[in-house]
């Protein structure tokens, strides 16, 4: 036995790119993270909707029929499922980021709310309504502004007036137009 020179040779295990498929917990996590891709696609869809609206009634009709395609309906249903999955997998994790000391010894909102999702939902809804209510009470005009893009769509669709449609390169004028509209 030679104890003068080290024969140490640690073995470093290779990292397999499919590691996340080997354990349910990791797979569920990757799915949760993966929902962001669908959310991104949905955001792009919303952007498309805006742009279509700005190009006028014609574009909007076209976009509506595009959305009506069975593939797109299926896609949107999938987005809904994904967002719900994301939301629900976050519920059990959420209390980890909040710590409330109750009566010195019972620690954590986690223990307190463990499994009581309905309570959490109601609390969230109540919080939303309260905050929203307060904001709108002081800035009632905000509601109109928030809804203004829908107003724009409505006016375009209703008027069928080509003059309300921007000419030429739509993309360039989008932001200006929206700003003008919201600002008026």
């Amino acid at each position: 036995m030679d104890l003068e020179k080290s024969t140490r040779q640690p073995y470093v295990r290779p990292v397999d790119s499919t590691w996340w498929t080997k354990k349910g917990f990791y797979t569920a996590y990757m799915l949760r993270e993966g929902t962001c891709l669908l959310v991104l696609a949905f955001v792009l869809e919303m952007l498309g909707f805006y742009i279509a609206a700005l190009t006028g009634a014609n574009g909007l009709w076209k976009f509506a029929s595009f959305l009506g395609h069975p593939v797109m309906i299926a896609f949107n249903a999938l987005v809904l499922v994904a967002v719900l999955y994301h939301a629900f997998t976050w519920f059990p994790l959420m209390p980890k980021a909040l710590r409330v000391i109750v009566k010195d010894t019972k620690s954590g909102l986690y223990k307190l709310l463990d499994g009581k999702y309905l309570v959490i939902l109601l609390f969230a809804a109540l919080l939303g309504v309260t905050v929203g209510g307060i904001v709108l009470f002081y800035y009632p005009e905000l509601l109109g502004r928030l809804l203004s893009p829908f107003g724009l769509v409505k006016s375009i669709v209703e008027s069928q007036d080509p003059s309300s449609m921007p000419n030429g390169d739509t993309m360039k004028d989008v932001s200006k137009l929206v700003q003008d509209y919201i600002g008026k």
Partner: peptide
């Protein structure tokens, strides 16, 4: 619960 400590750290 180290995950909790890290989220609180965030």
């Amino acid at each position: 619960d180290p995950a909790s400590a890290i989220q609180l750290g965030k």
